[in-house]
Nucleic acid binder design. Structure first.
Lengths: 349, 349
DNA sequence: TTGTATGCGTTATCAA
DNA sequence: TTGATAACGCATACAA
């Protein structure tokens, strides 16, 4: 923390007034025109810049928030949410500290401790690993907001309506005449249900798939349902899981004519497997993804269920700010997703 | 900045000693066993957590650094560098503030002012837009380090040897027998040269392409050289520029059998255009990218010149830390890249 | 080995 | 309308 040369006292001295008067022209208050002019001149002359650290110590507001992410490098989803938070925060004069927990509760605990040490005004989780780490924040009175998934039901939470989004994807595929639609996605057994509603993101998406089949009068074929992880956090976010699932699907006696992958990262692997098999998308197989992250960069450009990542970040921050300001902070906001149709889906052959 | 309930004074009171003694058991110093035990008990009992804000005010070290990025959402390169910085910083007890300048000097200025207001100990640029914003930091005595590109030659700088990396890519393609190799990349005319060496990243890559042709005894064909931007920051990082260039290349009377795109984002667009044209990679055309960001998620998985993003971030932070500690800070480190051969390159037909 | 006292740069209270 | 002055929580010089 090098200089920001001048201080309030320095400005006061240069202007021939007290620090209280300088503070008044800075923050508003009764100041004579004469004093104001003198202070303003001194401000310019000294190149004064307020010291947020000192302000924080005095006011008990650091104007920083912590942002706990799963792994910013493995899924662009997190980057987009984080960037939206940052932009929104900046407008309010807030800065954000990012910490990646890698899905590990122990790491998350360290990050939370750091946030506390730095006296952040609030913490955003996208997403939280362990409820105990949230309790730690409650103990010291730091509000927090959960984005996408909820470990605890006591505080604000903003998420997407995954069920509706996934239903829309299914309707799109069924509407194109597909009758053998595969599901490649997160295994509900590997994910905790959201506190307060008893369902997880994965429950919603899988149920939407099943209900979508039902609505279209299609049978459930277990061999077309491939559940697992989205990715290994340690491998930097490859679609290898999607690739593996798809290899199996393509070897089926009657292979699917469409695949719904519930994450663009998975979908990337799906497209790679299809490419390797020398089949064409969408001529031979249609593919739909989820998130709208990698989608527009894949070949062919991917039809996907877009998550409103901007809104997740913005609303998450707004909720945090509300909590900081002492407003009631146990809202749950559910945002709609949006099907973006690109070049990876077409009528069934 | 809510609570972190207990303070040094609170602990001192609970332990029946002075704050100085508490501080001694925390930071090391002569303390009797008796006092130490009392303090340690009080520490646990009160759940004391040091207040980094107060420490920062007192010691003039905030243990935070600013990280100025171009646009974290448009090119995964930035995320990877940022994540490496964060991980390295954490080990040293540092936290990072990220700010995206969007390539705009005015925004960058605002970000720099924020960094100063928060009294960051140093700033990392990846990459800086305007030299004036760096001077601003010098005025107030905050050290900074530049990653990838240098606007100013006075301080530490870490980058990749783009020339060597690009030469390797060319040798790979020429070695596979390709004789019509196209170049899709950044236009040197659109980028400033690095201060202190008079060349830009783009100069290096383009020159390596030309020299690579020369080494292979191949003629320079201007119609195979497509220069422009990597992406529009406002569009979220699509490969549309690469797509456009490739459409033109594929319409050539004698189309190239290989394309060297100097950014994975561009390469993604290249692959999309080839896919649309119903050609196969690498059977009909080989493609090489640069960065190793999207590469492993594209279809087919892309051969690319990998940048050591981890090292860029780590070394950048280490340089910043050295500068913070008053060590000489005008080193230039040039790192090697590494050609990663995947499925997008094969012998010329 | 321990405690007292001062100051980091602000904000805010209280007199004047 | 203005100016002393006392915190905020911590680190540290200096005494004891």
């Amino acid at each position: 923390m090098a200089a920001g040369n001048s201080t309030l006292a320095g400005v006061a001295k240069a202007a021939g007034v007290s620090t209280a008067t300088v503070n008044r022209v800075l923050k508003g208050g009764y100041v004579s025109d004469k004093a104001r002019r003198a202070v303003e001149a001194a401000l310019r002359e000294t190149g004064y810049r307020p010291n947020v650290v000192a302000q924080a110590l005095k006011t008990k507001r650091s104007f920083t928030i912590g942002e706990m992410l799963t792994a910013i490098t493995v899924n662009p989803f997190f980057v987009n949410v984080a960037h939206s938070v940052e932009e929104t925060a900046m407008v309010e004069g807030y800065r954000t500290f990012i910490f990646n927990n890698g899905g590990d509760a122990g790491l998350e605990r360290i990050g939370v401790e750091r946030f506390i040490a730095h006296r952040v005004d609030a913490v955003l989780f996208c997403t939280a690993v362990a409820a105990t780490n949230l309790e730690r924040l409650e103990e010291v009175g730091i509000p927090y907001v959960q984005i996408e998934r909820a470990r605890v039901a006591r505080t604000s939470f903003v998420r997407v309506n995954n069920y509706v989004g996934a239903r829309e994807a299914m309707r799109h595929l069924a509407g194109l005449g597909h009758r053998r639609i595969a599901f490649v996605g997160g295994d509900p057994a590997l994910h905790q249900a959201d506190a307060g509603r008893g369902r997880s993101v994965e429950d919603d998406r899988l149920q939407a798939y099943l209900d979508g089949l039902g609505e279209a009068g299609l049978p459930v074929d277990q061999s077309l349902i491939r559940l697992g992880r989205y990715y290994e956090i340690s491998d930097g976010g490859s679609g290898v899981e999607g690739y593996r699932h798809t290899r199996v699907l393509l070897d089926l006696p009657a292979r699917p004519t469409a695949i719904f992958a519930t994450c663009d990262v998975l979908a990337a692997g799906v497209l790679q497997a299809i490419y390797d098999a020398r089949l064409r998308v969408p001529a031979d197989i249609s593919v739909v993804g989820f998130d709208d992250t990698l989608a527009f960069n894949l070949a062919p450009a991917l039809t996907t269920v877009a998550q409103p990542m901007q809104d997740l970040g913005r609303i998450g921050f707004d909720m945090a700010l509300a909590a900081i300001n002492g407003e009631p902070a146990n809202h749950e906001v559910v945002l709609p997703s949006r099907l973006v149709v690109r070049a990876s889906t077409a009528p069934a052959a």
